[in-house]
Amino acid sequence: MTETVTGTTTPLTRFAVPGRIAVNGPTETAWQTATLTEIRRETPHAATFRLAVPAWAGHLPGQHLMLRLTAADGYAAQRHYSIASAPDDSGHIELTLDRVPGGEVSGWFHTVARPGDTIEVRGPLSGFFAWPGDRPALLLGAGSGVVPLMSMVRHHRARGLAFPLRMLVSARSPEELIYASELGAETTPVFTRSAPPGVAVGRMTAAHVAPLLAEPPVGGWEAYVCGSNGFAEHASRLLVAAGQPVERIRIERFG
């Protein structure tokens, strides 16, 4: 923050935008047509939608976009979705959508959408939740909150990054765990309703978080928390209680 305030001190900003991340310019805020090229089922309630977006400006893991569906009479519905895929130059991006009961937009994706359909997107948006792959990352997600975190995991793998990255992800059951077959040693799943034999059932606790913070990597963790507001409140409190500095906790709440 520049010290341009006249006659007073600039408010202290413990919680600031990282200067390392560029914000959206004109390309990112323009609506673009995206063509659905593939649909992959992830769980009984979630599927991944692969989109061709030829003029995609590129994104950082963790960023989201705005998506718009338009009816014949001009009525439009727009929602935010996190980008699941890692940055690459394929001209494609992937989104993973939960099917929300009665959901206007997710309902269309889960019941009507098929390859060849076109929709509109604008983005990527918001730099705050982005992880450029420049520091150790501790990721806590629940439900579809794993989506932007998976972009970070994929980026970490694709680039063979040396920074440590660990993920705690909460799901109702093994069947509801999005990206289950892709998760590796970096991930600890937590099951809240039913778990495989020998695995505890229950919400994320201090016991999951404490070991990771007991021996933080050099430079400390940048923590990313994503999911419902209820999960975000719970998980961010666990992090603070375990000693993670508040100014190094970034939260994306799905509302």
């Binding site: 014949a72 009525y75 009507v112 076109t118 929709i119 509109e120």
Partner: peptide, 13 residues
């Protein structure tokens, strides 16, 4: 306008 095939949306209010 880029109409989305098969999207009608909620009843208009």
């Amino acid at each position: 306008m880029n109409v989305t095939r098969g999207f009608s949306g909620r009843p208009r209010v």
